[in-house]
Design a protein around this nucleic acid. Structure first.
Lengths: 234, 234
DNA sequence: ACAAAAGTGTTTCTAATACACCCATGG
DNA sequence: CCATGGGTGTATTAGAAACACTTTTGT
């Protein structure tokens, strides 16, 4: 394949561009990270984020989504660029610039069989082992990013199932910010934003009484944004 | 030069990595952008951000600082990665991923002669012409970024001279957020943060009475950060 | 003496925080 | 009937926003 007729920049240096993905999940009150064993030389076999080289005729995000689907079976996942990591000799294999992404997935929905087959594992975020290159830094940076971002964008909902309870949502925020939140104030604030729809169903799995399920209403949220209102939780 | 002994990834695709810099300045109450005429084919001669290809043995930020110095004479400038722009066929010259940066410079300090010699110009931010590739998008994104960032980091001071007055600072925030701010509330808030040092000097250039000059105290700011306090202006 | 920008205080209102009890249910 | 997590209301406090006049000084 020859996507470009002519190379206008032939006197400049070419290098590899890769993308690595910090994949977050949320389960049983804990933030989790999906990592796997590196499949290419050098450093083959060490723990690593999921990543890939970017092909000449492929967008960076496309590449990231490709590997994410390959390993989890998931498509249409929330994913956003974090930043690039590409100091000169970071990668002993050759000059490679990695564009890190972070993704938020609903941990109940991924393809377990696929994940296992690729040697991938979910790790508690507090508990991540040493990763290849500066992937630990990427994780750290990604966590800071979602902490900041979750204050003004409703990204938390990307980690929960479609239907969730208020206590679940609270546990998520508690895990992200690593601190306890007063449940009365939390509920008050979340509901006052008016972006949740209460359903007639209850989740009976965590208490005898059951907790009402809610859905995030994207349309209401967009209206809220338009009106200049400031979305802010926790 | 041959910075790498061996290329482990030879079966993958190599491409160009560039960096473009959204350079902001602040003058006479207006946010300004430094742009210049593109010096390489294709699209030579069209308005463009200042940028460069990244060399094999050069960090991305290094490359950005190199061109910034080349054109403005400035070093030690505030610069931060914005995000990457690298869709497949965005650059007709060849597949190129650009890592956009934004820089904040003190507009009084750059080397005017150098800037002119490179055909660079300061444009009012409201008034930027059509730029090459998706550089207009980069400018837009950078502006959004500094708007968000200025709420919790003291980046505004990077755009002002070492010594500045409160009214000047206010005008800067007014330009960034494009709205008027009540001067009493602004002054109260800024001073309550306790990161400014009042000097014994006055700036007499804008009024008969003169306005006291202040300096931003980075040490006080760091202490503020440590104490978990939330820096927030405007 | 006046024009023009710098500087100063108080009141009002809104939103964050702190805090304790009742509810519903399955076992 | 009781243990467990779900759900509700109020008082206090802190900070944001609104608002108008006095000061200084070169001309």
């Amino acid at each position: 394949m020859k996507p470009f007729q002519k190379d206008f920049y032939i006197q400049e240096d070419k290098m590899y561009v890769a993308t690595d993905c910090v994949i977050f999940g949320f389960d049983e009150g804990n933030l989790k990270l999906l990592i796997f064993k590196r499949r290419v030389k050098p450093l083959m076999g060490t723990w690593s984020l999921i990543g890939s080289f970017v092909k000449l005729d492929e967008d960076v995000k496309e590449a990231a989504k490709r590997v994410l689907k390959e390993i989890t079976g998931l498509e249409n996942v929330f994913m956003e660029e974090l930043k690039t990591y590409g100091t000169t000799f970071r990668d002993p294999g050759y000059r490679t610039i990695s564009i890190a992404q972070y993704a938020l997935i609903r941990i109940g929905e991924y393809d377990k069989e696929l994940v296992e087959r690729h040697g991938a594992h979910w790790y508690d975020i507090e508990d991540v082992p040493d990763l290849v290159l500066e992937h630990n830094q990427m994780v750290k940076d990604a966590l800071l990013r979602i902490r900041r971002k979750a204050r003004y964008k409703p990204i938390g909902f990307e980690l929960l199932p479609e239907k969730f309870t208020i206590p679940q949502l609270q546990k998520l925020y508690e895990a992200v910010y690593h601190k306890e939140i007063d449940s009365r104030n939390f509920r008050k604030k979340v509901l006052s934003l008016n972006v949740l729809v209460k359903l007639d169903e209850k989740d009976m799995s965590t208490s005898r009484r059951g907790a009402f399920l809610y859905k995030f209403d994207r349309k209401k949220y967009l209206k809220l944004q338009e009106s200049g209102f400031n979305f802010e939780i926790a």
